[in-house]
Simulated scan of single mutants.
Amino acid sequence: MSNSDEAKRIARQDRIARGEARRARMEREAARAQAQAQAIRAEELRLLSEVGAAKRTGLIKTLPKVRKVQPAKPGNLPVIGERIVPDPLHPGDRTVATVNLAEHPLEMMLSRKRLDQALYEAGVRYRAIYERAVIGPGRGIDPGKVKVDGGKLGDPLSDDVAGAHLELKRLSRVVGMVGERILSEVAGRGVTIADLAMSWPGSERERSKRDYLMLRFKEALDVLATEVWGARGPASARIVGARDLGGEAYDEAAVATANQRFLNRRGIVGFG
Rank of each mutant, 00 (worst) to 15 (best):
Q117D: 09
Q34M: 07
Y126S: 03
D14R: 15
T95S: 06
S236F: 14
V146Y: 04
L153W: 10
V96L: 14
V269A: 14
S208G: 07
E50K: 12
A128H: 02
R173E: 03
L221E: 00
F271P: 01
A225H: 00
G19E: 12
Q260K: 15
A39M: 07
V124R: 15
E185G: 05
L183T: 01
R132L: 09
A242Q: 08
V223F: 05
V146I: 13
R216A: 02
T62R: 12
F217G: 00
R210L: 01
A33T: 14
A122S: 00
E44C: 08
Y126H: 05
I16N: 08
A54L: 08
R265T: 09
N100Q: 01
S236D: 11
E204K: 12
R9M: 07
W229V: 01
P88H: 03
L101N: 06
G163K: 11
V191K: 10
P105W: 00
T257D: 07
M198F: 12
R114P: 00
L215V: 07
E29S: 09
S158E: 06
T95E: 10
A242W: 10
A102H: 05
K8E: 11
Q38F: 06
M26Q: 15
S199H: 08
M177P: 02
A97G: 05
Y120M: 06
V148H: 11
P86D: 09
E103L: 11
G267R: 10
K68I: 13
H90D: 15
M109D: 10
G52I: 12
M214G: 09
K145T: 02
S184N: 02
